[in-house]
Write a protein that binds this DNA or RNA. Sequence first.
DNA 1: ATGGCCAATATGATTGGA
Length: 263
Amino acid sequence: MRIATWNVNSIRQRMDSLQAWLKEREPDMVCLQEIKCTDDAFPREPLEALGYNVAVHGQKTFNGVALLSKLPFDEVAPGLIGDDGDVQARFLEALVSAKQGVVRLVSLYLPNGNPAPGDKYTYKLNWMDRLIKFSRDRLTLEEPFVLAGDFNVIPEARDARRPESWVTDALFLPATREKFRALTNLGFTDALRAASDDAGLYTFWDYQAGAFQKNDGIRIDHLLLSPQAADRLTDVGIDRHVRGWDKPSDHVPVWVDLEITPR
DNA sequence: ATGGCCAATATGATTGGA
């Protein structure tokens, strides 16, 4: 089973690229972020025509997450626990049944948090605390569970081409990285780091200043695997070439192969 | 030279992104 995550930066602007990439990579499940549209405006039909079930948690203008799955959804649940007043669409959980049993998947868009300090950074740190609580609960289920998305966290200096330029940024501040470690220390495996310790592996390049051409990037899109998912990990990749396509998102897809038979 | 972009919005200046 192949599971991918991609911050598309507007689903409606990215449909040509998304369809081309789906045909090329053939993922079984896809986590999408920053769809930037309401549920009603999400272009379901062309994706269903490619064999995907579609679940959407959107909002007008900003944010918005979605899930695509070749397997039918047994359950879908929008929203992260811990703050009933949070109206930002950043979290969508789903359960599917594969041949070996259930697979739990989350598509998340963790808040950017800039400028820091400030209200937005406080929201980010609180959101991370809520994510830790959610994850601690779900990990007790001992299922193959994948927490995937745009975490807006640069975990370590080797995850940025120019770490010195990020030291006061909400994506790389010590408190941000500390909370990310608290999350992974619950027992998750960072799929990309299970396969490679190399520097220079990035998932985002700014649109400005020729960042992609200079490989001036950061690694902020992650797939975190529960122990039961990590046991089945066979391959992981970053589809860097997609950043060179026409009208690219500033993020590229990241994917894992798990030794789980879809059906 | 230390800059250069992109998306959405009752849409053409502002906000947010990272």
